[in-house]
Nucleic acid binder design. Structure first.
Length: 474
RNA sequence: GGCGGCGUAGCCAAGUGGCUAAGGCGGAGGUCUGCAAAACCUCUAUUCAUCGGUUCGACUCCGAUCGCCGCCUCCA
């Protein structure tokens, strides 16, 4: 199967055919940097990071852009509230954003353009919209005239007339239609501004994405992604702007991830169920968080709770544990030759099929656990024929292989200790082993208890003891 | 009101017009072990919200009903 994705624009699953063969140009609506990003924001960042890596794994040359909106009402409001400049606020949270995505194991996008670095392009695009009759100026503001764009509503399935009926009463009745939206806002005293043909002002919310994505990815690009809530008005408006300004189709495939809820309710500050990704990362490893998202299809709503996270953690540990056990066994069987195993190859094909079918990570995970099960069966039977060793090796290679895009297996399966700590822990474990061989149970148990108290679990296996960081209670 | 989505075991969650409805968590047994812990193995839905219809056959297609949710306003 070739890669298929569900396209919001057509509401169908479609075969993915890039504009340029073997190249994928994709854009994700990134953060508005006015605060730490929350656990709901983490979903698209993680999922589309996995998609990007998966497409690369499948042989595409991927160019991935995630913008940073660093000028916006929310930033200005925060700056005013804290008596700082908007740019200070934006700088602080841009830095925090990069720290957080690094911690999440998200690969840096190829480009992370900031809106304020594209002011000239934004102004040019607005001028084009005016020249082409899609936008009009009103006392220093510029509005997009929705009615002028025939395709308006094609992404969200909204009908202009119905929208009009339900539109809120706009304070600004100078607009030709209540639906018209600002592409340029004149600056009020104390607000940041840029010089423009319409006076001092700043861009409206949607224009920066249209401009940066078109500019950096070319006239028509392949994938534009974001949360479902962005379909309207943000992405609808992006289309109107980009296609109004240029004539060529904006984007081929629109992908939207489902919402994250907290204990069944929408996350909001007023409900007091608001979590930043930082807070969660302080309690759980990034790999667990990635696992949590990967266990469900990206388009479904997902419910966030500690219980779900703990489940994901248990599930992930099953994989990590098996990998470790395979390694312990393979260490005794060098040079088994090429690891070709037909059954495992079929499993791999099934996993790839699942991923190709609208990026079904939940199904792919199911296959992964089947592999884990077959490895565990071999290990449980203690039947290390050459054939079985080859199978174990093949499973190991596959797990490591797909981790290239899943990013769920910690670098050192034993935990986050550096080589120094590992050295001493190995030594202690060895000494304790000798004590046990000498039947000095008291001392052996003391070592076990003491290590336990600093978060290290000891496991006594048949012929060796191993230590691991206690993943759970951090 | 308009648009869209969802309802699968105790919980989470894939999936399919027809061979045994993936997988995970939890639970119950068991193996291993100096004792533990951990780990592993086995078992855990005659059934897919309800009621009709289409069909040789539906959980999967169609219709209705009930329930839940999202968007239409800033929001990933």
């Amino acid at each position: 199967m070739a890669f298929h994705i569900y396209n919001t624009l057509t509401r169908k699953k479609e075969l993915f055919e890039p504009v340029e063969p073997n190249k994928v140009k994709m854009y994700l609506c990134g953060p508005t940097v006015y605060d730490f990003f929350h656990i709901g924001n983490a979903r698209p960042l993680i999922m589309f990071d996995v998609l990007r890596r998966y497409l690369r794994y499948r042989g595409f040359d991927v160019r991935y852009v995630v913008n940073i909106t660093d000028i916006d009402d929310k930033i200005i409001n925060k700056a005013i509230a804290q008596n700082r400049t908007a740019s200070e606020v934006a700088t602080e949270f841009t830095r925090a954003y990069f720290q957080d995505i690094d911690k999440l194991g998200i690969e840096r996008p190829d480009l992370s353009p900031r809106a304020t670095d594209f002011m000239r392009d934004i102004i040019n695009t607005i001028q084009q919209l005016i020249d082409r009759g899609f936008a009009y100026e009103l006392d220093g503001d510029v509005y997009y005239e929705v009615e002028k764009f025939v395709g308006y509503g094609k992404l969200s399935g909204k009908n202009i007339n119905e929208l009009q009926a339900g539109a809120r009463v706009d304070v600004d009745d100078r607009k030709r239609s209540p639906m018209d939206f600002a592409v340029w806002k004149s600056s009020k005293p104390g607000e940041p501004w840029w010089e423009s043909p319409w006076g001092k002002g700043r861009p409206g919310w949607h224009i920066e994405c249209s401009v940066m994505s078109s500019k950096l990815l070319g006239g028509t690009f392949d994938i534009h992604a974001g949360g479902v809530d962005l379909i309207f008005p943000h992405h609808e408006n992006e289309i109107a702007q980009a296609e109004g300004a240029s004539d060529c189709p904006f984007v081929h495939y629109w992908m939207h991830n489902g919402f994250l809820n907290i204990e069944g309710e929408k996350m909001s500050k007023s409900l007091g169920n608001f979590f930043t990704t930082r807070e969660i990362l302080a309690k759980y490893p990034a790999e667990v968080l990635r696992m949590f998202f990967l266990l469900k299809h990206y388009r479904s709503p997902i419910n966030f709770s500690e219980e779900r996270i703990l489940e994901s953690q248990q599930a992930l540990e099953r994989i990590v544990e098996t990998l470790k056990n395979i390694d312990l066994i393979l260490a005794d069987f060098q040079d088994v030759g090429a690891a070709t195993d037909e059954t495992i190859a079929n499993q791999k094909a099934a996993l790839i099929d699942a991923m190709d079918d609208d990026f079904n990570t939940a199904s792919a995970m199911g296959t992964l656990f089947e592999l884990v099960k077959s490895a565990n069966l071999i290990i449980a039977e203690n039947n290390f024929t050459k054939e079985n060793i080859v199978t174990l090796k093949a499973i190991r290679e596959l797990l490591v292989d797909v981790n290239e895009f899943f990013g769920i297996i910690p670098d050192k399966s034993s935990g986050t200790f550096g080589t120094d700590e590992s050295f001493y822990l190995d030594m202690l474990t060895e000494i304790r082993r000798e004590l046990r061989d000498a039947r000095q149970w008291g001392m052996a148990d003391t070592i076990r208890d003491r290590l336990q108290s600093i978060g290290i679990e000891l496991e006594d296996r048949k012929d060796k003891s191993i230590w691991k960081r206690n993943f759970n209670k951090k």
